[in-house]
């Protein structure tokens, strides 16, 4: 560590000498090096990136329509013309899986961003201020932890589907609803982790120094303490994306997610259930993508956990 600091120091101190420091080892480059050692995490990263780019760019390249009805091509097995086959009303599954990926990944990332922000704010406030605020916030966290997640999700979505749909439209409405219920039922573990770290960090010298310099409370929380809590939050966020994709698929699978014209992966799997005997490919491809995306994301999370662990920095 001191070596790294000396390197970067000499690099900045004598820019004119022409001798560049060979390697500037920052915290992030160290973590990246550590991450690369986790072979499966690297494979996961490649797969996730491929799925990501595929769903973003894919619909522009593979221009078959995802809507429309064409009974002449119904339930076709995979072929060159339709790599993943077609569904019961003749729509190309490859196009639908690509579109579905956009939706599933968008739900995953948005809901995790929301749940991480909520959890971080609650945890930071509880840990920093302590006392009665901490007591109440943690009581609230416990309450949400004891809430039966899946039945509660189903109930809220069923009850509020119609009004939200009328307010925001059929697609945006259900998207907003699913993202917010996933966020509201999954912020608690992050809040606990952040709170615990804040409790131990808030009496450290660097915080005292910031106080002494007259830094404002909000700035101390967000600029001084929060960066130290980042690694468990990043790991939780990564794994949370996989969890949110599964939750969204589960909701769609139970018929309470997106409408049939919005083909999320879970919805595609749900639609395939009645045709398992005649068209098993309708189930296998969307299911494979959910599985691949989630396994890869989990491996990336596993790799990040190792890479960001300061005890393992090499």
């Amino acid at each position: 560590m001191s070596q790294a600091r000396a390197d970067s120091f000499s690099a900045t101190a004598s820019p004119t000498s022409g001798i560049r420091a060979q390697k500037v080892r920052t915290l992030w480059s160290n973590s990246w090096r550590q991450f690369q050692r986790h072979r499966l995490a690297m494979v996961g990263l490649v797969v996730v990136t491929a799925i990501f780019i595929g769903t973003l760019v894919g619909p522009f390249v593979w221009t078959k329509k995802i809507g429309g009805v064409n009974f002449a091509d119904a339930s076709l097995a995979p072929s060159l013309d339709h790599p993943f086959g077609t569904n019961d009303i003749g729509q190309d599954l490859f196009a639908r899986v690509l579109w579905g990926g956009r939706i599933s990944i968008a739900v995953g990332i948005t809901s995790v961003l929301a749940s991480i922000s909520l959890g971080t704010i609650v945890g930071a406030i509880a840990g920093y201020f302590g006392g009665r605020i901490d007591g109440w916030l943690m009581r609230l966290t416990d309450l949400f932890l004891s809430l039966p997640q899946l039945p509660f999700l189903l109930m809220v979505i069923y009850l509020f589907r119609e009004p939200v749909r009328q307010m925001l439209g059929p697609e945006l409405g259900i998207f907003f609803l699913i993202v917010s219920v996933i966020a509201v039922t999954s912020w608690m573990p992050v809040a606990r982790v952040v709170r615990a770290s804040f409790l131990s960090l808030k009496h450290k010298e660097f915080v005292e120094a910031a106080h002494a310099l007259g830094v404002q409370t909000g700035r101390i929380i967000f600029r001084h303490i929060l960066p130290n809590v980042l690694s468990p939050v990043i790991v939780a966020a990564t794994i949370g994306v996989g969890g949110a994709i599964i939750t969204e698929s589960a909701l769609s699978f139970l018929g309470l997610g997106f409408p049939p014209d919005v083909p999320s992966w879970g919805r595609l799997l749900y639609d395939s259930l009645n045709f398992l005997e005649v068209a098993p490919h309708m189930a296998i491809f969307p299911g494979m993508f959910i599985f691949l995306a989630v396994v890869s994301i989990n491996y990336v999370g596993d790799g990040l956990r190792d890479a960001l662990d300061p005890r393992k920095t090499g």
């Binding site: 996989g242 599964i246 698929s249 589960a250 699978f253 879970g266 799997l269 395939s272 259930l273 398992l276 189930a283 296998i284 299911g287 959910i290 599985f291 989630v294 396994v295 989990n298 491996y299 596993d302």
Partner: peptide, 15 residues
């Protein structure tokens, strides 16, 4: 173990 808890139960069920 990693695959087992990553694959959602509704997909294992369908398989």
């Amino acid at each position: 173990a990693f695959i087992g808890f990553s694959v959602p139960t509704f997909f294992t069920g369908v398989l």
